[in-house]
């Protein structure tokens, strides 16, 4: 029975390998053409406070958020809601991409100054 079992496992394995290859290939092509230029939004960190503290972005599209840290110490943008974690070095700008997201409120905070560095991203349905 052993060779038959190994054959069964090999067939499953081979199918998965090919499936993975197909995913890689399709995703590679898709990533080139799937998205138009992302709309850009800006956040600033100054005195360990994010400004604006509430940022509205459209639902169901990917957006680019450029975060500028004007403090002289690093901050880490952290959000479980958005599934993002990124260090913003002192005096530098950094970019995060969020979405496409359904409408709702998504909270984030600065890991190094969680008492003051807090904010929300409000995802809103755009009316045509």
């Amino acid at each position: 029975m052993q060779p038959q079992r190994n054959l069964q496992a090999s067939l499953i394995y081979s199918t998965l390998s090919q499936l993975f290859c197909a995913i890689v290939f399709i995703a590679s092509i898709w990533s080139q053409y799937a998205y138009a230029k992302n709309k850009v939004y800006y956040l600033t960190i100054k005195d360990h406070i994010f400004t604006p503290s509430t940022l509205a972005i459209p639902a169901n599209v990917k957006v680019k958020i450029i975060i500028e840290n004007k403090d002289n110490v690093a901050e880490e943008f952290d959000s479980f809601d958005l599934n993002r974690e990124k260090v913003i070095f002192a005096g530098k700008k950094s970019t995060i991409y969020v979405g496409p997201l359904p409408a709702g409120t998504y909270e984030y905070f600065g890991e190094f100054h969680p008492n003051t560095a807090r904010g929300k991203i409000i995802v809103v349905e755009e009316t045509p």
């Binding site: 090999s10 390998s17 090919q18 890689v24 290939f25 995703a27 590679s28 990533s31 080139q32």
Partner: peptide
């Protein structure tokens, strides 16, 4: 960048496909 990313992914795809036939 985007082009290098795609090229790298495609190279890996080919390499993985070759390795599939070398299973032990």
């Amino acid at each position: 960048n985007k082009k290098t990313n795609t090229l790298l992914a495609l190279i890996f795809t080919i390499v993985i496909a070759i390795f599939t036939s070398l299973a032990a």
